[in-house]
Design a protein around this nucleic acid. Structure first.
Lengths: 111, 111
DNA sequence: AAATGCCATAACCATAGGGTTATGAATGAT
DNA sequence: ATCATTCATAACCCTATGGTTATGGCATTT
């Protein structure tokens, strides 16, 4: 075994948090969520970065299982993946719960 | 103005996602959430990295407003900050909502 | 067949980032 | 006063990463 504290689930969580930690990548993902499936060409147009950079960002989002790919002729369409955020949401649920549980008594005190 | 798409809120979101994107940092934060306030010394003991590294990780978590600090003598105590995850949770709520809204019809199809 | 358009990969640069050891400033103990 | 403990910062190394331009492979158009 490699690292005890890094099973498959936390590996995915790690990949997802890392994928979401870049503003450009989040913007691309947000655009997919709002507008639906988009080609690399279209994403490049709204991203503010070069086409190769978009391709690399999308590759990273794909490795994090946050998007799906569909190739059609010379175009490549990316789409937000259903249930993609599940691992991160679950992490938030677990620690958010403990968190609020621990701080329930303080609710309202801190801004 | 600097960047249009990066207001104060998204700056915090950026810092939080970045802060959460490292496994060691998440482990430290998880420990604080589960066990409550801890000194740097105690955190170093369970972190698997050197004390200076712990200090730097905690500094980053603090900048992301995910922890609070309390100095007592020669010890420094860190604690998970109440409502710390709020910005990220809100982001998840917004995009998670659009997400599930978009995919409601597909529920159950994709694994 | 030739030209054009779309995309991924390679090569490269600069900076950020995780890790270390060394050091110094305070505080607490002897 | 001296010694020991706790922590933050500095200096350094190496890798990861965001960005670029250049290139080549396919698909579509002409």
């Amino acid at each position: 075994m490699t690292k005890i504290l890094q099973d498959d689930r936390s590996a995915t969580i790690d990949a997802q948090f890392k994928a979401l930690s870049d503003g450009t990548r989040r913007a691309l993902l947000e655009h997919l969520v709002r507008e639906g499936e988009q080609s690399v060409h279209a994403l490049t147009a709204i991203s503010g970065v070069s086409q190769p950079m978009v391709s690399r960002h999308m590759a990273k989002l794909k490795r994090a299982e946050l998007v799906t790919v569909r190739r059609a002729g010379r175009e490549t369409f990316y789409a937000a993946r259903a249930k993609g955020l599940a691992p991160v949401v679950q992490w938030m649920a677990v620690y958010g719960a403990l968190w609020s549980q621990r701080f329930t008594a303080l609710e309202g005190i801190e801004a």
